Amino acid sequence: MKANFADLDAFVAVAKARGFRDAARTAGVSASGLSEAVRRVEAQLGVRLLHRTTRSVVPTEAGQRLLDRLGPAFGEVEAALDVVNTFRGTPAGTLKLNVPISAVRLVLPDIVPGFLAAYPDIRLEIAAEDGFVDIVAQGFDAGIRYDERLEQDMIAVPIGPRVQRFAAAAAPAYLDRRGRPQHPRDLLDHDCLRGRFRSGATPPWEFERDGETLFVEPGGPLLVQAGEAADLAVTSAIAGAGVVFLFEDWLRPHLDSGVLEPILEDWWARFSGPFLYFPGNRLVPAPLRAFIDFVRAQAERG
């Protein structure tokens, strides 16, 4: 059975956007045109693909299965067409990245402005989230994650700082009032501002020194969404609400200004920096290849 490629593309756009209007704004077409395209696909296949209500559009079971298969297939088609890009003087097109919020804050600011200046014909789209994402199924060209989150069939390229640390800190006034911890276990007697992932997991605070690793799960008055709401924990710590535990680079401006004081600095755990990753079994689109080359060149310059 043959189906119109444009109509299938319309279905994918609507299913991913969970709505005709949002999909229309992204695609630059009319919502009515997308609706007609989806109806044609449903009529040809003889099955409903979308549940439509006045508030939302959600794929049916059949629609979800079709979406799961079309996402990777469309990616292959786009990559194949992108081969033509290699014959251009400069690469052009769209590069879609899925990255953790920490990378938006700590890694990409040193890369994106220079990359956009070097490749004015490339449009960079970045989705920031800390949950696990199937970048192929979700239509991304690549993602940024730390090594423990990388799948084995992905190619990984180092990006950003190669060594990072988690830091603990609090406002000087808070520490004057509650005392300065001398050991990670002392944090159990302090107000600690914790983070929780979207999965519901609340990661323990990890410390290490001289080959010894300790995991501490302190309590406290504030629990925020890790990544998205981390700045609220930082602001609360500056105001004296308790101890914050976050990337050292995230806290560094506040440590340098003195509004936050480092705690247990000789226990701060080191870990390897993030990686840009992408499928190893697909053609690499020209915009992604340009981004990889730019990142590698920047790393060589130090």
Score class of each variant (00 low, 15 high):
Arg39Gln: 03
Leu124Asp: 02
His51Pro: 03
Pro100Tyr: 05
Leu49Gln: 09
Arg48Phe: 03
Leu67Gly: 10
Glu78Lys: 05
Pro91His: 14
Glu125Thr: 09
Ile126Asn: 03
Ala79Arg: 07
Leu70Arg: 10
Ile111Asn: 02
Lys96Ser: 12
Leu106Ile: 14
Glu125Asn: 05
Ser56Thr: 14
Ala103Ile: 07
Gly33Tyr: 08
Val83Gln: 14
Leu34His: 06
Arg39Glu: 02
Gly93Asn: 01
Ala103Met: 02
Gly75His: 00
Asn98Glu: 03
Phe115His: 04
Leu97Cys: 06
Thr94Tyr: 02
Asp110Leu: 04
Asn85Met: 13
Pro91Phe: 15
Arg40Asp: 07
Leu50Asn: 11
Ala79His: 01
Tyr119Ile: 04
Gly75Thr: 02
Gln64Gly: 13
Ser102Thr: 07
Glu61Asp: 15
Gln64Trp: 14
Pro91Trp: 12
Leu106Trp: 10
Asp130Tyr: 03
Glu76Met: 05
Leu106Asn: 15
Val77Met: 02
Val29Gly: 01
Thr86Ile: 04
Val112Cys: 05
Gly63Tyr: 09
Leu124Asn: 03
Val99Asp: 10
Arg88His: 07
Asp121Cys: 04
Gly46Ser: 10
Leu67Glu: 12
Phe87Gly: 00
Arg123Leu: 06
Ala117Lys: 11
Glu36Gln: 11
Gly71Pro: 06
Val107Asn: 05
Leu45Ser: 06
Asp82Ile: 10
Val104Gln: 11
Ala128Leu: 06
Glu125Met: 04
Asp130Asn: 13
Val99Tyr: 01
Leu66Pro: 07
Val58Gly: 00
Phe115Cys: 03
Ala80Ser: 05
Ala128Pro: 02
Thr53Cys: 12
Val29Ile: 03
Ala117Glu: 02
Gly46Cys: 01
Thr90Gln: 04
Ala27Ser: 13
Arg105Ser: 12
Val112Leu: 15
Leu97Thr: 12
Asp68His: 15
Pro109Tyr: 12
Leu81Phe: 13
Gly89Gln: 09
Leu67Arg: 14
Glu129Ser: 15
Ala103Arg: 02
Ser30Cys: 06
Ser32Asp: 04
Gly75Gln: 01
Val112His: 02
Glu78Gln: 09
Ala73Asp: 04
Val83Arg: 09
